[in-house]
Design a protein around this nucleic acid. Structure first.
Lengths: 198, 198
DNA sequence: TGTACATCAGTGAACGCGCGTTCACTGATGTAC
DNA sequence: TGTACATCAGTGAACGCGCGTTCACTGATGTAC
């Protein structure tokens, strides 16, 4: 608390990332501006430069954080097994961290070659593909991974964009369960077909 | 042809839409600027205003065109029947008209309440849902529509973003065939049976 | 065939704005002795 | 316990830029008579 408006902020870095997330949910990731974030946080407009070299730097940090959160979440879901769990987890992440999710797939906005970011992205990707791959018992594993990823990514994107009509879904997690359930019938272990051996 | 640099352009509207598509493929839809498009087309920067009231107006026109193209394409694919055909059609559209596709799902960038746009979007959406719905023979039809749409939309998005690793797919249409084939196993007519005639 | 006139398409100067980034700076903090 | 000093975090003025939009305008086109 300290006196009012202390010279040092305390955790400006964190505050800026949070403000960015809020701004992104409000207006989308392409219109964020450092000056606006500084304003939201109550700091001089030159403040952010100190923590993130530039605007892309800030978004790189946000995307990295997103990939880390996603990787952790997927890792957790793998323990519980099942393609459905992984898919639901992906969708839950996307809807609960809309801003992160929106930035992560906009590599034009950040420093895509940043090593920390690349590492986090790799980790998330591995969690996803290995998690799915391990569940596939029928047919082409690569195609199954592709299908599962596309399915949940598309659903999350359409939901977040707000273009999905309410007669199709009202709750994103329910929707995710429904569609991953369908996919599971085709590629999952002991799918709808009990005759799917080994 | 006329003399060099005639006062009247001929078809400035069309030229601007084409330039916009090019610019969007290069830099994404959020950085297009009217002044840049005017420059590309070789016209005064105030020219575009005459054809599209403002920047959002231009993107509205592009999105509308996109929905119309998609609706027509899907309508054509319905004739040939099959969820796979519809899905492949969707993906083909998205990859062949990247700029249109990118704008269509960015309602923050255009006048979403424009009547012509709304009508075209409705038409595309109907073609898609009815086309898929008609093929569903097993289980919940709404969930199947949702799954199919999510699947192809996700695939198209991931492909266009360039985040899909080459070990998973190299050609978008092949990829689309593979994943729609999988889905078809779960929801299609005579599930998995290729002998689906007429 | 010719002329007057309305309409339309494109011009170019001007406006005001918010932005990213740089800069020399100052206030606060912590550490060595 | 006190003092000197280095380091760090945030300041605020300044820069140059590209943008969207407005404006009075002018060149070209087509149509009525």
């Amino acid at each position: 608390m300290a006196t009012d408006r202390p010279y040092h902020h305390g955790d400006l870095r964190r505050a800026l990332l949070d403000a960015a997330a809020t701004a992104i949910v409000e207006n989308g990731p392409s219109t964020v501006s450092l000056r606006d974030l500084a304003r939201r946080v109550g700091v001089s407009h030159a403040g952010p430069v100190h923590h993130f070299r530039d605007k892309a730097g800030l978004l790189t940090a946000l995307a990295t954080e997103g990939f880390e959160l996603l990787a952790d979440a997927l890792h957790g879901a793998r323990e519980q097994g099942g393609i459905a769990e992984l898919g639901v987890c992906y969708v839950r992440f996307a809807t609960e961290h809309r801003a992160h999710f929106a930035v992560m797939f906009r590599p034009d906005l950040y420093h895509a070659d940043d090593p920390q970011l690349a590492h986090a992205a790799e980790r998330a990707f591995t969690s996803l593909t290995e998690g799915i791959g391990a569940q596939v018992t029928e047919g082409d594993s690569a195609a199954a991974v592709l299908a599962a990823w596309s399915l949940v990514h598309g659903f999350a994107t359409l939901w977040n964009t707000g273009v999905m009509p309410p007669e199709l879904v009202t709750d994103p997690v329910d929707g995710a369960r429904a569609i991953t359930g369908i996919l599971n019938r085709a590629i999952g272990p002991a799918g709808g077909d009990p005759a799917a051996g080994s």
